[in-house]
Simulated assay, not measured.
Amino acid sequence: MLTLKAIFKKILNRKQSESSPVGLPENHRLYCIGDIHGRLDLLQEVHQKIACDALAFDGVKILVYLGDYVDRGIHSRQVLDCLLENHFPDFKTVFLMGNHEQVLLEFLNNKDLSVALDWFRFGGLPTLASYGITVRGIPTARDLQQLRAEFRQKMPAVHLAFFERLHLYYEIGGYFFAHAGVRPKIKLHRQRPEDMLWIREEFLNSDVFHGKVIVHGHSITDEPEIRHNRIGLDTGAYASGKLTCAVFEGTSCRFL
């Protein structure tokens, strides 16, 4: 596996234009947290590590969350409460949308309730439980309407506002952050939301350089992945007990 410095050296050798800078701007440090999926305990541990790591740094500090805050783990509501507490007032904080947040919003807002069954299959039931909602048996269409009404009632307004304000991507310097990745050979400013939230094999298997190094979650690996064109940070926290945080500074990358 290449080091990030070696990757950026290759990028520089390609004579990137000034509009495609390498690494982070000077005097910047960026922390990026992978998919949380309701693991409040791991999120609190990572927050503590970030606070200690950033204590002596006087430059511009940025914290990016890659999405998938909810589902699968048992503390989705509590994760939202934690994120909204603003533990890092001296950081610029960026919250990206994951595909799980997209489906949650579709369940709340879409007239077609069939999305609920898909959501339940890939982790939505623990999220409902964290808000005090129990699903018994296989719900009928009427049951789904009642569940949605109860979910709307029990979700705090600040949580709904949080979900609705999530960003699809964030870019700075030589990095582009998106939950799932990007579609190869499509310019970054023309990427479709569906791809940035859901894409897998076509992005993961591509050797194409996308103009910037893509930092993403969504696709689980045992360890963080550093490739010449992307960095993957989803280490399956809900099951593995390992929530990854990458620390970017200049052209370097390390992990907490």
Score class of each variant (00 low, 15 high):
residue 4 L to N: 08
residue 96 L to A: 06
residue 251 T to P: 05
residue 93 T to R: 07
residue 59 G to S: 11
residue 109 N to D: 11
residue 28 H to W: 14
residue 91 F to S: 09
residue 35 D to Y: 09
residue 216 H to V: 01
residue 53 D to V: 13
residue 237 A to H: 08
residue 150 E to R: 06
residue 91 F to T: 12
residue 181 G to M: 02
residue 217 G to D: 06
residue 131 Y to L: 09
residue 128 L to Y: 12
residue 107 F to A: 13
residue 181 G to A: 07
residue 81 D to F: 03
residue 214 I to S: 01
residue 246 A to C: 09
residue 237 A to Y: 05
residue 2 L to V: 14
residue 178 A to M: 06
residue 78 Q to V: 04
residue 197 L to K: 03
residue 140 T to H: 13
residue 12 L to A: 12
residue 5 K to F: 06
residue 210 H to R: 01
residue 64 V to E: 03
residue 140 T to P: 08
residue 145 Q to R: 15
residue 26 E to H: 08
residue 246 A to R: 06
residue 103 V to I: 15
residue 248 F to A: 04
residue 67 G to I: 02
residue 211 G to E: 00
residue 126 P to H: 10
residue 30 L to D: 04
residue 104 L to G: 12
residue 10 K to L: 10
residue 43 L to Y: 05
residue 52 C to P: 12
residue 201 E to G: 00
residue 53 D to G: 10
residue 162 F to T: 05
residue 101 E to Y: 03
residue 212 K to Q: 04
residue 15 K to A: 02
residue 164 E to W: 05
residue 113 L to H: 13
residue 89 P to E: 04
residue 242 K to N: 13
residue 98 G to I: 04
residue 123 G to S: 10
residue 136 R to V: 15
residue 207 D to L: 02
residue 119 W to K: 14
residue 203 F to C: 10
residue 4 L to S: 03
residue 72 R to F: 07
residue 11 I to W: 15
residue 101 E to I: 02
residue 66 L to S: 00
residue 173 G to H: 09
residue 72 R to T: 04
residue 113 L to Y: 12
residue 179 H to Y: 01
residue 18 E to P: 00
residue 228 H to V: 00
residue 228 H to M: 03
residue 121 R to L: 08
residue 242 K to R: 14
residue 121 R to A: 14
residue 44 Q to I: 11
residue 44 Q to S: 15
residue 85 E to G: 12
residue 122 F to V: 02
residue 115 V to D: 12
residue 217 G to Y: 07
residue 105 L to A: 05
residue 252 S to K: 13
residue 49 K to A: 14
residue 193 P to H: 14
residue 124 G to P: 06
residue 120 F to K: 14
residue 87 H to T: 13
residue 203 F to W: 07
residue 75 H to N: 15
residue 105 L to K: 11
residue 240 S to M: 12
residue 196 M to H: 05
residue 255 F to G: 03
residue 200 R to I: 03
residue 42 L to Y: 06
residue 151 F to Q: 10
residue 30 L to T: 09
